[in-house]
């Protein structure tokens, strides 16, 4: 038996060390990008597929000018931007993929902490946001401190305990992922970046495109992305 267990356990430990070291999407080490300013309306940012986008969102919110309308939602809300609202609207699209109510709370809390509370909040509430059995459950973990801050101020002790339990459960699954070989599976060719769907038309709309490779902010092509040419104010 020990001749079987020893290589198995050694292999799993090795796999965990590799996953922890490589950590493509910053799952365990946090994102490795530095974010010191919001990007300009003429720029877009292409990110690797496994990028931990929730941290990126909250970092970006810290650099926003005063906003009056915020949109919360999942990938279904991604293509909403400033140009689609009445003129003069200072809109920020804070959607994250596979969003849950936990994400909405974290992002709302971030706006509060930054003193940038919007007058209007649009919540693109997916039908499955109230489904207990959806598999989109633990993506909010990177923003757990924001969730806990919100809960401390607004929630009952029972719900605070629930939040802690959810965090522990999610963290357990994240730890199990350390011995998941698919973490290292290439998701796309690193030499063939896909074009973003559209350049963000304003620096407050920041659409995160379906990404494949990481790069520094680069200018949008001059033609023909229509959204870029109709850019409005931040």
């Amino acid at each position: 038996m020990k001749y079987f267990l020893f290589p198995l356990i050694t292999g799993l430990i090795l796999m965990a060390i590799i996953n922890l070291t490589v950590d493509i999407g910053g799952t365990w080490h946090g994102p490795d990008y530095t974010f010191t300013a919001n990007w300009d309306k003429d720029h877009y940012w292409v990110l690797p597929l496994r990028t931990e986008e929730r941290s990126l969102r909250t970092k970006q919110i810290g650099f926003l000018p005063k906003i009056d309308t915020v949109g919360l939602g999942s990938s279904r809300f991604w293509n909403m931007d400033t140009t689609m609202f009445p003129p003069g609207t200072r809109f920020y699209n804070a959607s994250v993929s596979g969003a849950t109510v936990w994400d909405y709370i974290a992002l709302w809390e971030k706006f509060k902490q930054d003193g940038n509370i919007p007058k209007n909040l649009i919540i693109y509430l997916d039908t499955w946001n109230f489904n207990k059995n959806t598999w989109l459950k633990y993506r909010w973990l990177p923003n757990a401190p924001l969730v806990f801050a919100f809960m401390h101020e607004n929630a009952s002790r029972e719900m605070q305990a629930t939040a802690l339990l959810e965090w522990l459960t999610g963290s357990f699954y994240q730890a199990v992922d350390l011995i998941n070989p698919t973490v290292l599976k290439p998701t796309s060719s690193p030499t063939k970046p896909t074009a973003p769907r559209a350049c963000p038309p304003g620096n407050t709309t920041a659409a995160i495109s379906t990404p494949t490779i990481r790069s520094s902010p680069k200018p949008c092509p001059k033609s023909p992305p229509s959204a870029a040419t109709s850019a409005s104010a931040p």
């Binding site: 849950t100 109510v101 936990w102 909405y104 709370i105 997916d126 039908t127 499955w128 946001n129 109230f130 489904n131 207990k132 059995n133 959806t134 598999w135 989109l136 929630a155 719900m159 629930t162 959810e166």
Partner: peptide
């Protein structure tokens, strides 16, 4: 996302 849809009381409370 929709399979086995059951009300998530925590999500409603949140």
């Amino acid at each position: 996302y929709m399979k086995d849809w059951e009300v998530d009381a925590n999500a409603v409370t949140l």
